[in-house]
């Protein structure tokens, strides 16, 4: 990265206050961070720390209430609903803890879904792309199964296939292993790892250290504030130092 290229995602003193029936609930305070292309970031913190909210803002699912959020150096406040929808369709995608697959719908159609809303990928490419994404998570033999016929691990791999079918720059994963046993969780993390190796930026929200260990950088939140932001290299050095003591 040269000094001329702005970070992919950048926040400056970002804050978020939820307003429910005139009751203000502040969730994020003064969050400043920059994430560059190709990073594998884990956002950690106890529940209620604001980690999911931060991810939703970074993923254009939610909006901030103060500070700045820049996408490739561009202020996102100027984006209208359609522009945000377009970014969600083309640049980012999500893997949710609860999988969020369409019920009574096949694996193929679930993975195909984002392509229906993609503004530039032609209809003729849909089938090939969908099959490729399903193959990438090793579920080709399950393509015609209904989502209800799959195990939890398989469902999450379908969700990953759905997230990569549009070939987005950033894939957000919100507790992707939260509902899975350890073997399935490991398979899911392996799939995300591969995507990161292929150049996708991965932003993961988790409270499990084991899951976070896959990330090259950990951002730790507590009560809506960033309390730690370290790369795995720094962490290793810190760990080594602790051991030496």
């Amino acid at each position: 990265m040269t000094a001329m290229t702005p970070p992919l995602l950048e926040t400056r003193s970002l804050g978020k206050i939820y307003l429910n029936d005139d009751v203000e609930t502040p969730v994020l305070f003064d969050v400043s961070l920059a994430i560059t292309k190709g990073e594998f970031v884990a956002i950690m913190g106890p529940s209620g720390s604001g980690k999911s909210t931060l991810m939703h803002i970074l993923g254009f699912l939610d909006t901030h209430t103060s500070g700045d959020f820049l996408f490739q150096g561009e202020q996102t406040q100027a984006f209208d609903d359609d522009a945000l929808a377009r970014i969600r369709a083309t640049r980012v995608s999500f893997v949710f803890q609860a999988f969020n697959l369409l019920p009574r719908t096949t694996v193929f159609d679930n993975v195909l879904l984002p392509l229906l809303y993609h503004p530039t990928i032609p209809t003729s490419e849909r089938e090939a792309r969908t099959n490729k994404a399903i193959a990438a998570v090793g579920l080709t033999d399950r393509a015609t199964f209904f989502s209800s016929q799959l195990s939890g691990g398989q469902k999450q791999r379908v969700a990953i296939a759905r997230a990569l079918v549009t070939d987005p720059e950033v894939i957000f994963a919100d507790e992707p292993t939260g509902n899975l046993d350890s073997a399935s969780g490991a398979a899911v993390m392996e799939a995300l790892q591969k995507l990161n190796d292929a150049g996708h930026t991965i932003i993961l929200v988790t409270h499990e250290s084991e899951t976070a260990a896959h990330a090259k950088r950990i951002i730790r939140l507590h009560d809506g504030r960033v309390v730690e932001d370290t790369t795995s290299f720094k962490r290793r050095v810190a760990n080594e130092n602790t051991k030496l003591k």
Binding site: L61, D81, D82, A85, R86, R88, A89, T90, S93, F94, N100, L102, L113, P114, L116, Y117, H118, R162, T166
Partner: peptide, 12 residues
Amino acid sequence: GLRKAVGARHRD
């Protein structure tokens, strides 16, 4: 929510 998350617009 899911459809919107994967890029569906208001009008879609």
